[in-house]
């Protein structure tokens, strides 16, 4: 089998030391392959978000080795000097709270990422429009984030995460704020991205109605992978 896009080996995370030490994640091995849509399940506080944040370089692992898209990026320490560039190039984040930049219009929130990634303006405009159309928010292209409904904002945030065609998509409860139909659209889109872009998509979720759309699920309990 081909090498996984995401490969975690003995990756652990603890917060604090001594009596206040919290082991958010015990040493964990995990492989996620291109084209797969993987669910990460588990009760609240079990370490699901920690896994996503470690992969995304937002949180520093306490130990272990992380390989992303063929490159070892963490091995006891970060080997990539520029984690932000890595995120820009390889990773799209989707959160429960949309995190749109409030002073940029819908279009500009998406164009910003393409801009930073070095896309030409016409290409960026084309791409932005396509994404907005696909996520059925093209009519809100010029709106400011504060003028959007929760569902619209979430779809724009998803469009932003997908904009630069990342090979890794990390979604932390992406459908929690969406109704069944919208949640279905989002899952379809993530599936499409996984297949067409040969991306690895990891979705943290509690959402029963999307479980059946996942290729596989992993379950965490108290920082340990139990299934």
């Amino acid at each position: 089998m081909e090498t996984p896009i995401i490969e975690l080996r003995g990756v652990a995370k603890h917060y604090g030391e001594g009596p206040t030490r919290v082991d958010a994640l015990k040493p964990l091995d995990l492989d996620i392959h291109a084209g797969s849509l993987i669910g990460l399940l588990g009760p609240s506080g079990s370490g699901k978000s920690t896994v996503l944040n470690l992969i995304g370089g937002i949180v520093d692992p306490s130990a272990g080795r992380v390989r992303l898209d063929g490159d070892v990026v963490f091995d006891g320490r970060w080997l990539r000097r520029d984690l932000r560039r890595m995120r820009l190039e390889k990773i799209g984040f989707i959160f429960q709270f949309h995190n749109l930049i409030p002073f940029l219009s819908v279009t500009d929130n998406i164009a910003l990422v393409l801009n930073l990634a070095g896309w030409s303006r016409p290409e960026a405009e084309r791409r932005t429009l396509d994404l907005l159309e696909y996520l059925q928010v093209a009519d809100r292209a010029q709106a400011m984030p504060s003028q959007l409904s929760g569902g619209q904002a979430q779809r724009v945030a998803i469009a932003r995460a997908l904009a630069n065609r990342p090979r890794i998509i990390l979604a932390d409860e992406p459908t929690a704020a969406l109704d069944g139909e919208r949640a279905g659209i989002v899952m379809d889109l993530l599936r499409k991205v996984a297949v067409e872009q040969a991306a690895a998509v990891v979705v943290v979720t509690h959402d029963e109605k999307i479980m059946n759309r996942l290729d596989a699920t992993h379950v965490l309990r108290d920082g340990v992978l139990v299934a």
Binding site: R84, L88, F93, N99, I101, R160
Partner: peptide, 16 residues
């Protein structure tokens, strides 16, 4: 603060 954190999250360099 939140906007700047988001910029860092989506990969904006310090320069931006």
């Amino acid at each position: 603060t939140r906007e700047i954190a988001t910029l860092k999250l989506i990969g904006a360099p310090d320069r931006t």
